[in-house]
């Protein structure tokens, strides 16, 4: 019977010399899911994808993709996965169509299927007009699209997307996100690494936050936001402009202050104490508080909270 899990990872560890890139990472991805793998730069996201796709050996742990271990059965696993690396890396001298057909050859597709699949993907990714353009002559956004198309030539069960919209303009990134949704609706499991939290929240069913090679949290975006509900956030609008430095100095209960859409977004230790300090500060500055609201933590707030927690743990470790 086919497992409901597309990816199962348990106790995955990887060191580069004395640097611990991944430590005891465990998670699983269900078939048909879009799973976001989040983390700041250097968290170990690309290392994980490289291990899962068979490009890098792990030091410890177990990895099963579509029921097989990529280390012991690489050809079986590679036939079932499609990988879009963080850099678009097709052959610059080959045309878009030839690139796709060549990928089909490498995956052992018969000639007729290669040709029809290439045409279908060129059409799906709106690249029909560029079929005879060399890959090297495409814009960054079109290169990204063709690289994703190439990863889909053999109809993979699992698609790994490493920072798919990185460096793209807003319309291209939005169009690509739509394509990712469509690929998923057509049945592929999507493993998405990104540091774009809005993208992760918009696309994925579940999210894993990786900090310094360790799993900080795992769950649906809603569950993760729930886990940081003790995070006190306020939105405060003053009647006139104020500076952050005196505000922070006058209000010890305010940990962070950042301007946001004409208001101040404040992270506070305790709402009541902060409110009293803010009123006193406003009075001293000769301004009024015209609006004050509590804010529900976003995935970005949760991410930042886990990041701080992770950094604090690292500093505390002797």
């Amino acid at each position: 019977m086919e497992s409901i899990l597309a990816i199962a990872v348990s106790g995955l560890s990887k060191n580069y010399g004395s640097l611990e890139a991944l430590s005891e990472v465990s998670f699983s991805v269900r078939r048909g899911e879009i799973f976001a793998y989040l983390g700041p730069n250097g968290a170990g996201k690309t290392t994980t994808i490289r291990i899962l796709s068979g490009l890098l050996k792990r030091d410890a742990g177990e990895v099963s993709i579509c029921g097989a271990d990529v280390a012991s059965d690489p050809v079986f696993v590679k036939e079932r996965i499609g990988v879009v690396p963080d850099e678009s890396n097709l052959y610059p001298e080959l045309t878009c169509r030839r690139n796709l057909e060549y990928m089909g050859e490498l995956y052992g597709l018969p000639r007729a299927r290669r040709k029809s699949q290439a045409e279908e993907l060129l059409s799906f990714f709106d690249l029909n007009g560029r079929a005879t353009t060399p890959f090297g002559a495409l814009s960054k956004g079109l290169k990204r699209r063709l690289t994703i198309a190439a990863a889909l030539m053999h109809d993979p069960e699992v698609v790994f997307l490493d920072e798919p919209t990185s460096g793209l303009d807003v319309p291209s990134a939005r169009a690509l996100r739509e394509l990712i949704r469509t690929i998923n609706h057509q049945g592929a499991t999507v493993f998405l690494t990104t540091h774009n939290l809005h993208e992760a929240e918009a696309l994925s069913q579940r999210v894993l936050i990786l900090i310094k090679g360790r799993v900080a949290t795992l769950g649906t975006p809603g569950e993760i936001r729930q886990r940081v509900q003790n995070l006190n956030l306020l939105s405060v609008t003053f009647s006139a402009g104020i500076e952050a430095a005196p505000l922070l100095e006058a209000c010890p209960a305010v940990l962070q202050a950042s301007p946001q859409n004409g208001a101040w977004r404040l992270e506070v230790t305790e709402a009541q104490a902060a409110l009293e300090q803010l009123l006193a500060f406003a009075g001293g500055e000769g301004v009024r508080i015209s609006e004050i609201n509590t804010i529900t933590a976003s995935l970005e707030d949760a991410f930042m909270s886990f990041l701080k927690e992770g950094e604090a743990k690292t500093e505390a470790t002797p």
């Binding site: 490009l55 036939e79 097709l90 490498l106 190439a150």
Partner: peptide
């Protein structure tokens, strides 16, 4: 250098 060698390593090739 171009990263295209990685395509061969990602494909189901011995």
């Amino acid at each position: 250098r171009a990263g295209t060698f990685q395509r061969l390593l990602l494909a189901p090739l011995s």
